[in-house]
Write a protein that binds this DNA or RNA. Structure first.
Lengths: 225, 225
DNA sequence: AGTACCGTCAAACGGACGTTTGATTCAAGC
DNA sequence: GCTTGAATCAAACGTCCGTTTGACGGTACT
């Protein structure tokens, strides 16, 4: 049967074509959008035949899903691990900054540590949240499901005085600021004239977390509607 | 020469075809993205012939530009007017909240007051900042040029103790939160289970402005890099 | 009546797209 | 040595795209 292929995949030698396709798709999806990046351009960049994309993934959508899953899976795993560490502490020692860091750091870090592909993925991921493609958005929401399911109660516990509606809005703003910080790297570098260095992961995370923590700690507006 | 047409345009009777095209394009660009919305779908929705789009606008890109300009122009004019009012006050009476409101309110308000088209434009506009289409992004940046040129010094004056790099980052986060609040309406309504009502313009603006004001007022992180 | 022009229309253009097909190569199993 | 099946390849499939064309009615001006 497929013993040969199974043995080869299980051994060390991974499929070059598949990985090349993922790398190329990641960059071009980020650069031109999902609709704007054609399979012809992707396969050409990967140095493989056009039909290889369908042979290995089945469709363009499945390729996109694989691109997202490859990076999102470890990112979200790390987020949950940091959340576990945060919650393992005695309640008195937990700080909102730390909770926010658990939420923000892995995304920004993974997105920027890989020199070039990470840069591409950061753009793609930052855009995905509000992408017009239902596909891209649904992929992100699927992969993000457990993260929000675990983080929302943690935020609520860290801010017991905040009305739930206010909390949800602030998480919403947080996601927006984070996504923009990831997707809009060229923008701030251009506007700041190079003063703001987006390659400084720790600095970016720290600034973002402090900004958000202060926003979360703001007094709640009177709850009119 | 073109006296007839000029007279007709100058008179009350505006061109129905042109406006129908703008309305339809606004909704479909927002719903499916610029690349995903075909001129065939747009003209069909507008109830006009396919060739009318090129006759009246010249190209798909020019149609997109017209869609954006129609809404962005009054929004940005209002932003600058609010900034003028803010700066006309004696310095002692100015508040950061008010400055942020001048920046945020017109976008959210115009984006949501129009019952349905505004909803579409809000999505489109919120996405435009990081859109993969160079066209859409460049349109927004063009229309936004004067706004940032006037608001950045105002922010710097309102927060004289904040290092410039920190200020730029926080403005960056602000833009992200604002864009996400506009583009991600369906998202927060779904996540909150309807608890957060995105049709409540005043409430949204107020929550966002307070959140951002607290973030801006946070102590600056040590300026490492 | 005649001219000029605007707006609309159906039809077609060439090109790019995602996907499918069938042939070819090559290493592993009997 | 022959078969099997995974992997790659060039070529083609049908569809949809943005744009162009040329003809047709209608209105305003001479």
């Amino acid at each position: 049967m497929g013993n040969a292929a199974a043995a080869r995949n299980a051994s060390e030698a991974v499929n070059h074509t598949k990985e090349n396709l993922l790398d190329a798709a990641e960059v071009l999806f980020a650069e031109h959008g999902v609709a704007g990046a054609s399979l012809r351009a992707i396969t050409a960049r990967a140095g493989v035949n056009l039909a290889a994309a369908h042979y290995h993934f089945g469709s363009k959508e499945a390729l996109l899903r694989a691109v997202m899953a490859r990076r999102l899976r470890p990112i979200n795993a790390r987020r949950l691990a940091l959340l576990d560490a945060y919650e393992a502490q005695p309640a008195a020692e937990r700080s909102l900054v730390e909770l926010l860091r658990a939420f923000v750091d892995p995304v920004v870090r993974f997105g920027r540590e890989l020199p070039d592909e990470g840069r591409a993925f950061a753009q793609l991921c930052g855009r995905a949240m509000n992408a017009p493609d239902d596909v891209l958005r649904s992929i992100l929401i699927d992969e993000l499901g457990e993260v929000v399911r675990r983080f929302l109660p943690a935020f609520a516990r860290a801010l017991p005085a905040l009305p739930r509606r206010e909390l949800l809005w602030r998480v919403h703003f947080t996601v927006g600021a984070m996504a923009h910080a990831m997707a809009g790297r060229r923008l701030i570098e251009a506007v700041s004239g190079g003063l703001c260095d987006t390659r400084d992961v720790d600095g970016t995370v720290e600034r973002l977390v402090r900004f958000l923590a202060a926003g979360f700690a703001a007094p709640a507006a009177e709850d009119s509607p």
